[in-house]
């Protein structure tokens, strides 16, 4: 088969492949944010964590020669940022949103500072599994090359949904996120639970960052993130704080992000930059469409500072 055989089919195919590629960092950041918000706290600093995780993952992978050690380092760096956020917010009269913005800027600044030496060198890539072996069409093969982290993200979404439903830790996180009073009445430690959820959420965002620098786009530079960390916050609201819905929403956002490149590949050049803005337009559109002045947000954790 030659390229012309699949014709315009290459657009949805490229979008599917793009969705899988682009969505992975969304999956990790939004699952991290979902966990943190379910405990009743918002971490807006995940954008900074993502960028720092990308730098740390790339740097460590280059120094050690192993992409997986890089991913571990990114998770640890993300966890450290989460710990800082969690600790600061456990102090009295501290606003989690303001701290989140400060940490976002700090994370990006530190990443640019420490990341300077790693812009040129080439670090090892994360492995991908090819599901397109049955086809001869190069587009199909390219689209179905799925990174291991994407599959891990899917498994993680299922695991997190199960955790919220059927484990003590999951129920405890939900109680803490629902009401401080109810949690205290049960003898749950509100601050410790939120701290742990923020650390874990930060670690997941760090992994999302490592995917950016170690697989797609696959190099470290200062413009590596295009706001995925911030858009993940909107995505969690759109997904109504449900991990599995987070996964599908991340795919949708990924697909929107892949629209521009896919159209470009078939030669559509008009309004090219506009298509690149699709994920942002989608964010805005979804938030407006799913909000209401007269209804309460269903599914929102009751202790979250935006719903109080």
């Amino acid at each position: 088969m030659s390229e012309s055989d699949i014709g315009l089919w290459s657009v949805p195919l490229a979008m599917l492949g793009g969705a899988i590629r682009v969505s992975t960092p969304f999956i990790f950041v939004s699952l991290g944010e979902c966990l943190t918000e379910r405990s009743g706290r918002i971490n807006l600093g995940l954008e900074g964590v993502l960028v720092f995780g990308a730098m740390a993952g790339y740097g460590v992978a280059y120094e050690t020669g192993s992409a997986w050690i890089g991913v571990g380092a990114a998770a640890m760096a993300g966890g450290a940022f989460g710990a800082l956020h969690g600790w600061l917010c456990s102090l009295p009269k501290v606003n989690d949103i303001a701290i989140g913005i400060a940490l976002m800027l700090l994370g990006m600044g530190l990443a640019f500072f420490f990341g300077k030496p790693y812009i040129q060198p080439v670090a090892p890539d994360l492995p991908a599994i090819s599901f397109g072996w049955w086809s001869d069409a190069p587009q199909v093969v390219a689209a179905l090359k799925v990174n291991v982290l994407f599959l891990a993200g899917f498994a993680l979404a299922l695991a997190m949904a199960w955790m919220f439903r059927a484990t003590r830790i999951g129920l405890a996180v939900r109680v803490v996120g629902d009401s401080d009073d109810a949690a205290r009445a049960l003898g749950l430690k509100v601050n410790q639970t939120r701290f742990a959820a923020t650390v874990a959420g930060g670690a997941l965002a760090g992994v999302g960052g490592a995917y950016l620098s170690l697989y797609y786009p696959g190099s470290w530079n200062e413009g590596i993130s295009s706001g995925q960390g911030l858009m993940a916050v909107a995505l969690v609201i759109f997904a109504r704080w449900n991990p599995i819905a987070c996964f599908w929403a991340a795919l949708l956002f990924g697909g929107a992000g892949a629209l521009g490149p896919a159209l470009q590949s078939v030669g559509v050049t008009q309004g090219y930059y506009l298509f690149y803005a699709a994920p942002y337009v989608l964010t805005l559109g979804l938030l407006i469409a799913t909000s209401s002045t007269t209804r309460q947000l269903t599914g929102a954790p009751g202790a979250l500072s935006i719903t109080r």
Partner: peptide, 26 residues
């Protein structure tokens, strides 16, 4: 005032309120 967590079901509330909630709920 109510001390039940509103987002959880009654069954979930009862189980998590025990002194020794199971790590994995069967």
């Amino acid at each position: 005032h109510f001390t039940l967590a509103g987002a959880l079901t009654a069954a979930e509330n009862l189980v998590i309120s025990r002194d020794d909630p199971p790590g994995i709920v069967n």
